[in-house]
């Protein structure tokens, strides 16, 4: 790891000032991802701006019908928070399944959304892959067991954040303070960038932008949400597939539904075709499996990850069934 100038501001505007004035400065929250990138020399900024002392970026508050989570709130805090458990079940579950207790005690919500992909070719300093500005996606013909089964044309990374699909199922907005000092809200559906659009980044954030928090809409009385993740190891593993769903019921009829899948494409994906299978109909397990079928219909798996298609179908069905169960009052 290369040495860098280190800044420890205590307010958001001070942090913003440094990010604006110091060229190439990188914001750092928990650092559980950034430290790995620095050590592997995938990034080597001259300056790092720690958000550790920016108290205003930490906390969980109910605000105008939504739940605001500050960007530097730790994942452990989210997983244990009563407000999140009540009405944001998918978010609580996704937080609880992130990393390990040791990671969750340090890693933050903002960092979770902005972390770089885990593709082993991208993370390996010796592979000049397309994501790093090279010409080849080594996963296309190489070891691609854990790679994308959708949108896998130019780069086969999968989106790594657990919280992203869960927050999307709850129609989250991401709050960003721009380099111009103005704040803006970005709908979580508009936050992600495909490799075809811009290979150098995974989100729409520009240099100098700072994620200050996220606000999601908790479910009401006849609503339930769930997050399901499948992985090879019970403890500390990355998802092979995951899905988050929120279902609003009217009696046994599905009034509204959000289904978001992840770990299967470079970005999390809302599956409206699968939602349409359920919308307006009486919920049943059979219907959940049909929605699972619809969610994988256009998958384009690679040589070693065909198993992910079947796994995703089941992940979707189980997620929808768990969400519907909660909506019926079986929380």
């Amino acid at each position: 790891m290369r040495n860098f100038d280190y800044y420890l501001p205590s307010t958001t505007s001070e942090a913003q000032d440094v990010l604006k004035k110091v060229k190439g400065a990188r914001a750092k929250a928990g650092g559980t991802d950034l430290m790995g990138l620095l050590k592997d020399r995938l990034t080597a900024p001259d300056s790092v701006v720690s958000l550790d002392n920016v108290g205003e970026l930490t906390g969980i508050k109910e605000r105008d019908g939504g739940v605001w989570i500050g960007a530097t709130t730790t994942i452990a805090t989210v997983a244990a928070n009563k407000t999140v458990h009540r009405g944001g079940e998918a978010v609580a579950e996704a937080a609880a399944r992130t990393g390990t207790p040791l990671i969750r005690n340090r890693a933050t919500v903002g960092g979770n959304l902005c972390q770089r992909p885990r593709c082993w070719y991208f993370r390996h300093p010796d592979y000049p892959c397309s994501k790093k500005g090279g010409e080849t996606c080594y996963a296309q013909e190489g070891e691609n067991k854990y790679h994308a089964i959708f949108d896998n044309v130019t780069c086969n990374i999968i989106h790594p954040s657990n919280l992203a699909p869960a927050l999307w199922a709850h129609d989250a907005k991401i709050h960003v303070l721009g380099a111009n000092g103005k704040t803006r809200d970005i709908g979580i559906d508009e936050f992600w960038v495909l490799p075809e659009e811009d290979m150098s980044k995974e989100t729409v954030l520009e240099d100098g932008d700072l994620v200050t928090g996220v606000t999601y809409t908790p479910g009401g009385r006849s609503s339930g949400s769930a997050y399901v993740e499948v992985r090879e190891k019970q403890s500390y593993d990355w998802a092979l597939t995951n899905a988050a769903a929120r279902i609003d019921l009217s009696g046994s009829r599905v009034k509204d539904v959000r289904l978001v899948i992840s770990a299967v494409a470079p970005v999390p994906m809302r599956r409206e075709d699968a939602e349409a299978v359920l919308k307006g109909k009486a919920f049943s397990e059979d219907l959940a499996w049909k929605a699972g079928e619809a969610a994988v219909a256009d998958a384009t798996p690679l040589r070693d990850n065909k198993y992910k298609v079947r796994l995703l179908k089941a992940t979707v069905a189980h997620t929808l069934i768990a969400a519907a169960q909660r909506a019926k009052g079986g929380k």
Binding site: K28, G31, T32, V48, L102, N105, R106
Partner: peptide
């Protein structure tokens, strides 16, 4: 009092 990974924490923090 919280268990954390000392390899991922900058000492300054």
């Amino acid at each position: 009092g919280e268990p954390q990974l000392s390899c991922l924490v900058l000492a300054r923090e």
